[in-house]
């Protein structure tokens, strides 16, 4: 069997991508700790949190992609947001698995803090972006903290640009 046939066979066995999730920003968020900083993720895009998975090195990828982890036999890429945001590798053992069976992506995090309901008044969309907001589309106000909401699509676009 030629490699092209193997690839075609694996692709035909792959499940179809899910319908677009209507991510209702401004409702529930998962607040995570990455290093010393808090970040928020829309609850709808978080599949699960897993702990203590070994990261397998994956060559030819940007430095903020730490490698692959094994989630139920499927390879998930591990994106280190701390490297992306501040060029420092995160020493941690928890992973947020994102709800997207096609992209199979996870973020490495220090801890998950809470899941909170945020009123729309406390959600602030970022209109004029500068470099430091490049990966966030909004922020939420919670217990006097202003917490940026990670824009996963921008992370994906950054990865695609760096791989070209």
């Amino acid at each position: 069997m030629e490699n092209s046939e193997i690839i075609d066979s694996l692709k035909s066995n792959q499940s179809s991508p899910p319908e677009d999730v209507n991510v209702k920003t401004g409702e529930k968020f998962v607040i995570v700790l990455i290093g010393e900083k808090k970040f928020a993720l829309p609850e709808l895009i978080v599949q699960e949190i897993i702990i203590e998975n070994e990261i397998h090195y994956l060559p030819f990828t940007p430095h903020y992609i730490r490698g692959l982890i094994n989630r139920q036999g499927e390879p998930y890429s591990v994106v280190d947001l701390q490297i992306l945001f501040s060029n420092q590798m995160l020493e941690a053992k928890k992973f947020v698995i994102l709800r997207n069976s096609v992209d199979k992506m996870s973020f490495i995090i220090s801890d998950i803090l809470k899941i909170v309901f945020i009123n729309s008044n406390d959600i602030h969309f970022i209109k004029d972006q500068n470099d430091k907001d490049a990966y966030f589309h909004s922020s939420i106000t919670h217990e006097n903290d202003e917490i940026p909401v990670v824009d996963v699509q921008k992370i994906v676009i950054r990865i695609q640009d760096d791989l070209e």
Partner: peptide, 14 residues
């Protein structure tokens, strides 16, 4: 073949 998995879509082509 069922033991082999394609890499995550965002990475696989590159």
């Amino acid at each position: 073949l069922r033991e082999l998995k394609l890499l995550p879509h965002v990475l696989s082509e590159a």
